[in-house]
Simulated assay, not measured.
Amino acid sequence: MNCKNCNNNLRDSQKFCDECGAKVIQNRLKPKVLAQQVNEQFLCVDNKFLRTFIDLFRTPETVIIGYINGTRKKYIDVIQYFAISITLVGFQVFLMSTFFKESMDFGSGFAEGFNASSAKADNPFKDIDFNSINNYQGLIYILTVPFSALGSWLAYYIIGERSYNFTEHIVINLYYSAQVIIVTALLTILFLVLGLNYFVISSIIYIPTFAYLFYVLKRIFKTTFWETFARFLLVMAIYIGSFMIIGLLMLIIVIIIGIAIYK
Rank of each mutant, 00 (worst) to 15 (best):
I207A: 07
T228F: 01
N135P: 06
I170N: 07
E168T: 11
V145I: 15
F16A: 04
G66C: 08
T144K: 08
W153V: 04
Y206H: 14
F49K: 05
G113L: 13
S85G: 01
L233W: 13
V180G: 02
N197D: 14
S118P: 04
N7P: 04
D127P: 00
F100P: 03
I205E: 07
I79E: 05
A119Y: 06
M1K: 13
P124A: 08
F214H: 11
Y156G: 04
W153I: 06
K23E: 15
D55S: 05
I79V: 14
F100V: 01
I68N: 06
M96V: 09
N5H: 11
Y212K: 02
E168L: 14
N27V: 14
L43H: 07
V33D: 07
T209G: 03
L194P: 03
T71N: 05
F16D: 10
V200T: 14
V193N: 03
T144W: 05
Y67K: 10
F16P: 03
Y157E: 15
F199W: 08
N5T: 15
M244A: 08
M1Q: 10
C6N: 00
D46C: 02
F110V: 11
I189S: 04
C6M: 03
L143Q: 05
P208Y: 12
F57G: 02
I205W: 04
V254M: 11
W226V: 02
L194K: 01
G151A: 02
F57E: 10
I159C: 13
L95K: 00
N123S: 09
N135Q: 12
L196E: 14
G107H: 06
D12N: 06
A155N: 13
E102K: 08
C6T: 02
N123K: 01
Y156C: 05
I255W: 04
M250T: 09
Q179R: 09
L251M: 10
